[in-house]
Computed example of a mutant assay.
Amino acid sequence: MPNLVRLIIGFAFVGAAVALMFFSFWGWGSLLIFLSILIFVTYFYNENMLIAQWHLRKDNMPKAEKALGKIKSYEKELNRMQHGYYNLLIGLIESRKAPMKSEKYFKLALSLGLHMDHNVALAKLSLAGIAMGKRNKREATMYLAEAKKADKNKLLADQIKQMKDQMGMLDKQQQVRYSR
């Protein structure tokens, strides 16, 4: 449903709810208030993206990909503030199938803007993993430091520590190769 239509329906429900409550139909008015809140939530958070996030948390990639596939043109269907999150979700799905191809989605998500710090940290941590896969230690270290800085609530602290440990092991392997 286009965004403008959602807003019109949401405000129509609010108006109808106020009118019903004015005429003492509190139950119906409350129901319409609840429905209008639901419509406004789907304006700010696209239902297909919410479903995709649910399936990603349940580690069901085919269903998450199918839910995101319902969004044909994200520039037209989503709010400007959702564009980055759409690309972040696509990047997370792609990282399971072809990790090196997901880099462009994470970079695009960061350039379009992610408003929550832990999502910025997740994107930068994923980019650090991709850089490690490419054996680009300097870039991986840079992304890892930025991820640690963005992770203010320490939600990804364990993953960042694991990545640093892997980088340390990679350094030791390279030192052993060069000493031979």
Score class of each variant (00 low, 15 high):
Ala98His: 09
Ser24Leu: 09
Lys97Pro: 02
Lys76Ser: 09
Lys72Pro: 01
Ala123Asp: 04
Phe13Pro: 00
Asn48Asp: 15
Ser102Phe: 09
Ile37Val: 14
Leu88Pro: 03
Met169Arg: 15
Ala12Arg: 07
His118Thr: 10
Gly168Asn: 14
Leu110His: 14
Met100Asp: 03
Gln175Met: 13
Lys152Leu: 14
Leu35Thr: 12
Ile71Cys: 11
Ser36Met: 06
Glu47Ala: 11
Lys124Tyr: 06
Pro62Ile: 11
Asn46Ala: 07
Ala67Cys: 05
Ser95Gly: 04
Arg96Gln: 14
Gly10Met: 07
Pro62Ser: 14
Phe23Gly: 01
His115Glu: 04
Asn136Ala: 14
Ser24Pro: 00
Leu35Gln: 04
Tyr85Met: 11
Gln159Thr: 11
Arg135Asp: 01
Lys76Cys: 04
Tyr43Gly: 09
Gly129His: 03
Ala16Gly: 09
Glu77Gly: 02
Met142Glu: 15
Gly29Phe: 10
Asn60Thr: 11
Lys70Tyr: 02
Lys104Val: 13
Gly27Tyr: 10
Ile160Tyr: 00
Leu108Tyr: 03
Asp59Gln: 14
Gln162Ile: 09
Asp171Phe: 10
Glu47Asn: 08
Asp151Ile: 13
Trp54Tyr: 15
Asp165Asn: 13
Leu56Phe: 03
Glu103Cys: 12
Leu155Gly: 07
Met61Val: 15
Lys152Cys: 07
Ala157Arg: 04
Ala145Trp: 08
His118Phe: 06
Asn153Met: 11
Arg80Gly: 06
Lys63Met: 13
Ala12Thr: 12
Leu144Pro: 00
Leu92Pro: 00
Ala109Lys: 01
Ser179Glu: 10
Lys152Arg: 15
Gly168Val: 08
Glu47Ile: 12
Ser30Asn: 05
Tyr74Glu: 09
Ser126Cys: 07
Gln174Arg: 15
Asn60Leu: 05
Glu75His: 14
Val14Asp: 08
Ala147Met: 05
Glu65Leu: 03
Leu7Lys: 13
Asn3Asp: 01
Gln175His: 05
Ala150Pro: 11
Gln162Trp: 04
Lys66Asn: 14
Arg138Val: 10
Leu56Gln: 13
Ala147Val: 05
Met81Tyr: 08
Ala52Lys: 01
Leu78Val: 12
Trp26Lys: 12
Arg138Thr: 07
Asn48Val: 08
